[in-house]
């Protein structure tokens, strides 16, 4: 692993003028960039990992909510979007190949195709969001869809907060709604009736919007990066010996695809 060992099948006549002063050669620089990028991807995995954790916890504790609520998602649009992202990954892989082979015009074209497919993905996603918005199928406090029959009434009153004495009372104005909600002794957990929708359907939509939203933000960032790469490729900045930025953008884009590959079955194809 010591610096300077040249792996087979990698650089030979790479352009050297791009090598920064603290690297020995282009290969060391390229490999460093790649390692750095993969470490960054690892942090992305952990960032999304938190959301996957939230998903797992809520799905395992409220399976009925997930089974009930996922029907409101459009399976067809989801599948089309999956295919769109896979195609964009494919064009991205081809773009890196074109860069390696020094085909500049092909590179620009393929990057353009990738951006176009990404835009297509976002468009379809936007259609889905719009529908949810109209139907009130939103997260937490904003969920207001009318789901026929209402669940049995639950105690809505909170125990009175004991008034604090004298100076000890907080001067920060109290919040509109105080913390509440863990079980109190003597209150049985209410099971879902077979006829009505389950409780807490809004939790599914919170998870749905968080996961697809964070993913969507990544798509937008990816589009920006890809467009920038297109400009640089057009200027002829890349060559078979120097394509680190294209390669790293590609890795990022594939990761965005990778995450969607899991989101699709987890959100749309629940059974």
């Amino acid at each position: 692993m010591a610096a300077g060992t040249t792996g087979e099948g990698t650089v030979a006549g790479a352009r050297t003028h791009r090598v920064a002063h603290h690297f020995d050669n282009a290969e060391q620089q390229f490999e460093s960039g790649k390692l750095g990028m993969w470490i960054f991807l690892a942090t992305e995995i952990l960032l999304f990992g938190g959301l996957f954790c939230a998903y797992a916890v809520y799905r395992s504790n409220h399976p009925e909510v997930f089974i009930y609520a996922h029907r409101f998602l459009d399976k067809t649009l989801g599948a089309i979007n999956t295919a769109v992202l896979i195609c964009s990954s494919f064009t991205m892989a081809l773009a890196v190949r074109a860069a390696q082979l020094g085909r500049r015009r092909q590179l620009v074209g393929l990057l353009g195709a990738t951006v176009a497919l990404a835009a297509c993905f976002l468009g379809i996603k936007g259609l889905e969001y719009e529908k949810k918005w109209k139907e009130g199928l939103l997260w937490g406090a904003h969920f207001h869809a009318k789901l026929a029959p209402a669940p049995p009434a639950l105690p809505q009153t909170l125990p009175p907060v004991p008034a604090a004495a004298g100076e000890e009372r907080s001067l920060i104005p109290p919040a509109a709604i105080g913390p509440a909600g863990l079980a109190r002794p003597g209150q049985p957990a209410v099971a879902e009736g077979p006829e009505g929708p389950p409780h807490d359907v809004q939790v599914f939509f919170a998870v749905y919007f968080l996961m697809t939203g964070l993913h969507g933000v990544h798509v937008i960032i990816g589009m920006a990066l890809l467009s920038w790469m297109m400009v640089r490729a057009g200027r002829g900045e890349f060559s078979p010996g120097y394509l680190t930025p294209v390669d790293l953008t590609g890795l990022y884009w594939h990761l965005v695809d990778l995450i969607w590959i899991f989101l699709f079955p987890l959100l749309y194809l629940i059974r």
């Binding site: 990992g49 954790c53 504790n61 669940p151 639950l154 709604i177 909600g181 957990a189 879902e192 807490d200």
Partner: peptide
């Protein structure tokens, strides 16, 4: 990620029955 998900899951499954479903005063 697997470590995080599995332990959080293990734990929340154990106390899940103490939560009241549908108790949502803020809804």
């Amino acid at each position: 990620v697997a470590l995080f998900v599995s332990i959080a899951l293990l734990d929340s499954n154990a106390y899940a029955h103490q939560l009241i479903p549908g108790y949502g005063p803020a809804l």
